[in-house]
Amino acid sequence: MSSFKKALHVEGASVPFFEYEQDGMRVIEFDSSTCVPPEPMVNAMLGLAMIKDECTKLIMINHKSPMGLYPKIDKNFEVQESKLENGKVKLEIFYKKGLSELADLNDASCMG
């Protein structure tokens, strides 16, 4: 079961963010699939800062696998990647107890 999507104001974001409830989880979602670097990374960093517990997950839709993002987050968050029918990529990012708090979310650098 999921609730209606509500627009979420995120200061500094370059794309709209949405939030909704799904299977008891708070889901935060954004679509950066029409953005060129560094926008996907900037928005991802802003979204990751909102994953503060195991009941929250972030969904990122991108035009391809964000290779620059993985080295920054794969130690601190659990990431599941899947390919959508339209060729885009969906990342579901989950909280990792004791590790997500340690993530450096100020370094939004990426190289494509």
Binding site: G12, P38, E39, V42, M45, L46, A49, A108
Partner: peptide, 18 residues
């Protein structure tokens, strides 16, 4: 220029887009 000057500021303040 963005990477050099603004990437460390993401999350701390609103940064410009390219």
């Amino acid at each position: 220029v963005w990477y050099q000057r603004f990437s460390p500021l993401v999350g701390k303040m609103k940064v410009p887009m390219l």
